[in-house]
């Protein structure tokens, strides 16, 4: 009776990493067999097979990027998502202070209530997802991230096909929000306190970036200069700034990996992805493809550092049979 189920299990358990199977496979099979005996069946159910596939994929993900790294990266990323949504949604889409949006509104034949475009829906969902990561259950947080991705894709489609005036140049910010939300969705649940600190940190960074690197005075930007959220990537995170920031971050990650801080390096690499994709998209559409080449070299350098680190680690590990015990 148990032979068929064992055969089933061995066929389906290939979804798990080999090392995981060696460590836990026998215990897991024992549990499946006990359960099947109690229910009088000799096969895995469809739900059990689906569970093995999804569990195996999650285990493979955690084997690739440890859960600790995923949690820290998702905390920083969800903070970035919330800060971006708040900053872009309020300053660039609403800009209640100063009323300078009148300049913009004169150019728009159509607005979205008190906001310039439906991008504010993406911003609202993203901000709510960030808040949910702190105060709500995981399923609600993930549902809101999923909704943010869908809304971002809809805004990108509006921007691409230019339906009405709404889609006016909102593809880049929607793309940026979509990449962050996707990375956070695929990662383990964030740490609440770190997510809050991260959101505050990113908001301060945006203000400093605007004041130091922006083409306009900070007061001008926050008083309603904007021509919509795309201005965010001119006034706050300029593509060149994101590009050089990514390069510096990737080199730092490579260095950290070499000096035994591989987990911190991995977190930096994951957090750099939205900025790198932003720079890559800008380089691609701006026909400045050297951006892509240099970013690819940055990621290659980090990967090379990881390989060097692993090789060193493997060569330092002494096989048990070679260890001699000093009788003294």
């Amino acid at each position: 009776m148990s032979v068929r189920l064992s055969r089933d299990f061995h066929r389906w358990s290939i979804w798990y990493p080999k090392r995981w199977c060696e460590e836990n496979g026998a215990a897991m099979l024992g549990t499946f067999l006990d359960l099947a005996d109690a229910e009088g069946r000799d096969r895995l159910t469809v739900l059990e097979k689906v569970g093995i596939v999804t569990g195996g994929l999650v285990a493979r993900g955690e084997a690739l990027v440890p859960r600790e790294v995923q949690r820290l990266a998702s905390s920083i990323l969800v903070g970035l998502l919330g800060a971006f949504a708040l900053f872009a949604g309020v300053v660039f889409e609403w800009a209640p202070w100063g009323g300078a949006n009148r300049v913009v509104l004169e150019q728009f034949t159509q607005t979205f209530g008190h906001f310039l475009s439906p991008f504010v829906i993406v911003a609202g969902l993203a901000l709510t997802a960030m808040l949910a990561s702190v105060i709500a259950p995981d399923w609600l947080y993930r549902s809101l991230l999923g909704a943010t991705i869908i809304a971002s894709l809809a805004v990108m489609a509006l921007a691409h096909w230019g339906i009405g005036q709404f889609g006016f140049l909102r593809a880049t910010p929607a793309f940026f929000a979509c990449v962050i939300a996707l990375l956070a969705l695929l990662s383990a649940a964030p740490r609440r306190r770190v997510a809050l600190i991260s959101a505050g940190g990113w908001l301060v960074t945006f203000l400093i970036s605007t004041a130091v690197f922006g083409p306009l005075p900070l007061a001008h930007v926050v008083s309603g200069y904007p021509y919509g959220t795309l201005t965010f990537f001119d006034a706050v995170i300029q593509p060149a700034l994101a590009y050089f920031g990514c390069l510096i971050a990737l080199l730092a990650a490579a260095l950290l990996t070499l000096i035994r801080r591989a987990k911190v390096g991995a977190v930096i690499v994951l957090v750099s992805i939205p900025f790198a994709t932003l720079s890559a998209a800008h380089g691609w559409f701006g026909r400045d493809q050297i951006y892509l080449v240099v970013l690819a070299l940055g990621y290659t350098a980090t990967a090379a550092a990881a390989v060097v680190r692993m090789t060193r680690h493997a060569s330092r590990a002494t096989p048990p049979e070679e260890i001699t015990i000093n009788p003294q």
Binding site: A27, T31, F32, L35, L47, G51, I52, T54, G55, E68
Partner: peptide
Amino acid sequence: LKVSSLYAALDRLASD
């Protein structure tokens, strides 16, 4: 609780 979810939870509890 699904068996796969049980082992995933045990893995996480152990790693934490």
